[in-house]
Structure formats: C-alpha cells, structure tokens
Design a protein around this nucleic acid. Structure first.
Lengths: 346, 346
DNA sequence: AACGGAGGTGAGAGCGCTCTCCGATCATCG
DNA sequence: CGATGATCGGAGAGCGCTCTCACCTCCGTT
C-alpha cells in the first residue's frame, strides 16, 4: 500500500527546529540541559514530522538494545501447551513494556536449536535473557553462562553440572507448598498419604517430592509413584497406587493435571472423593482445578508474578551493570510463597 | 561474570584474513563472487575470532531487521491461557527460525497499549507483523494498516470498519467445519440440534454460527444460545437450552471448552451422552477433548500449521517487496481445511 | 568594568556494516 | 604475444545516531 515512507531523521528534525542534531538528541533522550523554549520547539518539530528514532543507529553507538530474549526450552509439547508458561510470559511482557524493553521470543526444540540460541545470545543482540530451562540435563544454562549474557532463570535450574555462582532464578516455593499440602491432608486425619510425582527430571517435581518427604518422614515407599505432570500419567500412577496400596486414604499429586487424571481413576474404582480418598493438586490452574469433580484443593502459585519478577530482576541487573559496576548488591534469586486453596477434594 | 568481551568486528576479521572488509562482508553474506581460497581464509578467521555480525550496524544500512513482530491483542485472560495461541506461536517460531528471523512478541492489554504497538510498528523496528486480532471492534487492524507495515492476520479480521484491500489473513475454515459437525449430527438422525455459540464479537464464532445455520436452515431460534468459549459459559448456555428445549437431542458447541461445560450440565441433568444427547465440539484441543467424559467428537484444525503459514506468507511478501515490487502475485489469504474427529460423544 | 565560571549549544568524530564504484588480475582470443 | 573482456578485490562513502569537546552566552563577583 503505502510506499516506504522516507522516515525523518534527527537531522531533519534539527533543521526544522533550527537547532543542531545534538540538541534534538538531548531532547529526545530526556531533555536535560536544554532550555525550555528550545525543548518546546524541538518537541513540536518531532511531532510535526512524526519522528521516531532509529533504534538500529542508536544501538550501534550505545551498545544497548532495550531488548530481552525469552528462551523457552520446549522438548515436549505439554510444557508449552499449558497455561503456566503463557501466564509467566504475560507477567514478563508487562514488566518489560513498562520499561520500554522489547521481548524477543526464542523457542527451542532439540539440540541444534540450542546452538542457535547460544549463538544468538552470544551475538549481543539483546541486553539480557530470561530462560525457562525445565530439564535437569539441559545444556542451555551452561551455554548461556558461557555466552556471558545477563540471565535470570524461571524455576530453579539444575546446577549439578555447573557453576552456581551468580545464577539468579525465580521460583515458587515448591517444597514448602508441598509440605503445606501434605500437612493439610495430615490435619484431615489421613495417614496413608500417597504422592504422584511430576517428571523427576524437573527441579519443580523433585522439590515437591522433597516437600512430601519432609512431612512423611518415613512414608511407605510404595506410596510414591512417578508421574509426568500429565493427566494420562496421573491415571497410570493412580492405578498403580490402588493396586499396591488399596488402603490409601489421600493423594498429593504433583500438579493439577495429574490430580485430574487421578480423580478419574478413583471415581472409576468406586472411591468417593474426598470421603474415601482426599486429593490435593498443585498449581491452581483454574481451568483445571475448578472443573474437576469434585473441584480440586490445590496449592496456588502466582505465576504471572513470577514472570514479572524475572523481568524486574533482569532489568535491575542490567541497570546496575550500566552504572559502571556500581555498588548495590547483585540481584539474587527469589522464591515466591505458595498458598493452599481449599476446595472440595480435600 | 565475564566482563563485556570486546566483540570482534569485520575489520578485525579482515585484518586476520589479510583481506579487505568488503571481502569479509561478501563471504559472510553468502560468499558470491569470492574465490574459493579467499573464502576459506575468511571463514577460518571468522571461526577463530568467533565473529558475529553486529545486527544493528547491518540494519542501519540495509534497512532490514530480519525481525517480525507478533502482536497478540489479549483483552481477556482466556485467550492467552488456552493452548490455541501457544500452538500457533510455535508454528510461527519454527518458520521464522528457518529463515533466520527473530520473533518480537507484543502483548497488548487495553487501549493505551494499542497506541504503543502502533508506534512501535510505525517506528520501523521490524520488517513485518503477524497480528492476532480477536475482537470485532478492535482498532488494531486499522492502526496497523495505517502504520504501513506488511502484515498477516491470524484469523479473519473484522473489516466492517476498514479497507479490506490488501488484507492478508490465515484462518481455519470455521464455517465449513461447523457445517461438517452439524451434518454429522444430522447423519446420526438427530433433529433437535442446538448450538452454543462462541463469543460473537469474534469472527470465528460468527463463522461457526453461520456454518450451523447453513445446515439448519430453519432451525428453531431457541436452539441457539450465545456462549463465550469458556466452560462456564458452556454450562450456563446448556442450562438455558435444557430449560427452553428439553427435547433437544444434540448440541454443537463452538469450541471444546464450551462442550466440556455443556457435558457437565448434561450429566447433571441425567442425560446420557451420546445416547440422549450427542455433542460435538470444535478445535480438538487434546488436553480437553480427550479427557471429557465421554471423549469429545470435535472438529480439528491444524493450529500449528496456521502459525507456520502466517509466517511463510509474511516472509514471502517481504521478499517480494524487497525484490523491487517484483512480479508475482501479492500473497493472498489462506483458509485451512478442518476435519471431523470422531470420538465417543457423537 | 573586567573576569571567572556555569550552563547551553553546536561541530565532528565515530559506532560496524554494506555497497558502489574502480582498479587490478587473470584467462582468452585474434 | 599483446589486446580485451570478465571477474575479483579494495577503497571509501555513508546509514542515523550519540557523545565528547570546544565554544559561547550570560550571570555573579571583586
């Protein structure tokens, strides 16, 4: 439609306002040290010409991009298809927008993609990165640390292989939340409390299992079955549990989807929930938790806030860096609290 | 950790390879017209120095950014939290990655955000835009057309207010899919077929309703109730339907979530599905459709493919534009076919 | 009344890259 | 064996911006 409109440059604005480029630049970037009448004239010229700074030219000299990469390692569809990530992304977006930063989304799938992402980050196209590294053996954290890009992780990364110094992450208190869930079941008088874990190659699943163990210090090992965060996994695990321990009276599922699967099997088996078996989930994913039958008691985490916090931490770190290694502590990791939401299932 | 490593420049590579900047540039950008031995030498120097081109400098002269904005208007949480968008995004990401383009994600929320997005697009920071404009009265399409940025829409935009010339979009065959769904119900011998619509401020909902009407030419108007694409809306609508038309024997729900809500109400009311009432959904969102009771017969659309296609269309358009308004038709809109997936509910 | 010092403003040098000339180089043909 | 293209490689001019200086007002001081 419109032919490539010849966008006005600083020069053009300067000419129109009858000042030098430098002055226009000053006005555009905050306007400090320019007298009011001039500021006004420049503003007017900018307005009239519809001037928008050329980010490329600016980046070339400032070495800043006002852009942050969000890297999502997504080996499995599940991860991406659940609302979890979407909510976090939204939190991130809000925070970045508030500070005029762009969000560059990098989805990876498979090993070669990792290399690509590493190259991209090392290439200095963005000021920092927010990384969702979900699996224990993920090479991504290492790659990124190597790339030397300021980074904040979503969820505690696995640092078994690496250097944990300087690693900043934002996570929910998975362990504490799990403890709360299990304690709640204990408080209900349940004694044979089972746990269906998440995919144990993810720290969140491990942490929730640890929380369960914190309370059930000498639990019957048969009460713990590995799931994978999916409803199908929950069903399978629940069947196994019922076979092994028909006397169980409660289940703590590693997430709501798992709980939904478990509920279905419990119903099939003729158990009443919560009378015969109480069930608690994790996440408080509304579309799931509110619609199971019965509705699910679960552990809520503020996912959007996690995202917002990640972005905030990163931007703060960038500022600090910009301020010539200024004083003030480097940002450190944050673990957000969880809350138990009581519904009908326990 | 690492102090800002002084990244090597073209100059440095040239020096090391013993050639001029121009030659290095040529090699880096395809290597045409440079003799093999030199190419080799340059490649080696690039490798050794770990040279990565400075995108900002390059953009400054080429006026290309190799970046595409993805704009998601998201007035409601629902839109974002469902897997639909995530899948589409994945398709887009794959395609963009394949052509070395970056994905800049712009989430909007509310009016002032629109202005921000308009400014950003008009600012020429990206080569093109992929826009998900979901609501009929959305000012975004207009803003974008005004910004003069090559754009492909996800889902047929509402152009009641605007100029539809040159508007390119990718959509599922919502109307055709709806027809198939209803015809299937007719084929099952159902005669009192109800429809729970989606949010009618979205073209997809309108198109599905139209498809329903295509088959049920003189349907009892009481058989049509407005929903909003949510399970809660589905429940509400189903209750209303049962009250109005207790004799209905089938329901076509505008999407799977709505169908899930409807199923719940049907079960509550003592109806058996599919014996008493057959139910068909739309979308084939696996986590939902496979897990309702009974599993849902629904209309599948290839969501990821839609995303991929959007990106492909846009990139093709950009190429064309780059080729000096070359010949070859401007890309035109694409409507992807849908398929009926039979499960237990109808 | 002259002078030092702020505080404003402008000139100019790049940031790292691409791309257009042009000159150099080689093979080929008369 | 020399002229003639065709091809390859290099020099250099910017792309639009920021930022350092140097300059130039204009004020307050002595």
């Amino acid at each position: 439609m419109t032919d490539t409109a010849p966008r006005p440059t600083l020069e053009a604005v300067a000419a129109r306002a009858g000042v030098s480029r430098a002055t226009v630049s000053r006005v555009v970037n905050g306007g400090d040290g320019v007298r009011e009448p001039l500021v006004e004239r420049v503003r007017k010229a900018v307005e009239e010409l519809g001037y928008v700074p050329n980010q490329a030219a600016r980046s070339l000299v400032t070495r800043r991009h006002d852009a942050v990469a969000v890297v999502v390692a997504e080996p499995e569809t599940r991860v991406f298809a659940d609302p979890f990530f979407a909510l976090q992304l939204r939190g991130i977006s809000k925070e970045l927008t508030a500070y005029d930063n762009q969000l560059v989304l990098l989805l990876t799938e498979g090993r070669d993609d990792h290399a690509r992402v590493g190259r991209y980050l090392a290439g200095g196209h963005v000021d920092g990165a927010l990384v969702f590294s979900l699996h224990l053996d993920d090479p991504l954290p290492g790659l990124i640390q190597h790339a030397g890009v300021p980074t904040v992780f979503g969820g505690r990364p696995d640092w078994s292989g690496g250097d944990r110094r300087g690693v900043v992450y934002v996570d929910s208190d998975n362990r504490g939340g799990a403890r709360d869930a299990v304690r709640h079941l204990v408080g209900l008088g349940r004694t044979r409390i089972a746990h269906i874990t998440g995919a144990l190659d993810q720290t969140s699943a491990v942490d929730r299992l640890d929380g369960y163990r914190d309370v059930m210090v000498d639990a019957d090992p048969r009460l713990i079955v590995e799931g994978d965060f999916t409803p199908a996994g929950g069903e399978r695990a629940m069947r196994e549990l019922l076979e092994r321990c028909p006397d169980l009276d409660a289940v703590f599922a590693a997430n709501d989807l798992t709980a939904a699967g478990a509920l279905r099997v419990l119903r099939e088996s003729g158990r009443r929930v919560p009378q015969d078996v109480a069930v608690v989930g994790f996440d408080d994913m509304l579309p799931v938790a509110e619609q199971t039958e019965p509705s699910l008691t679960t552990v809520r985490q503020d996912i959007e806030e996690m995202g917002r916090l990640m972005a905030r931490l990163l931007l703060r770190g960038l500022d600090r860096r910009a301020a010539e290694q200024g004083v003030g502590a480097a940002p450190s990791s944050v673990v957000l609290p969880t809350t138990l939401v009581r519904r009908a299932s326990a």
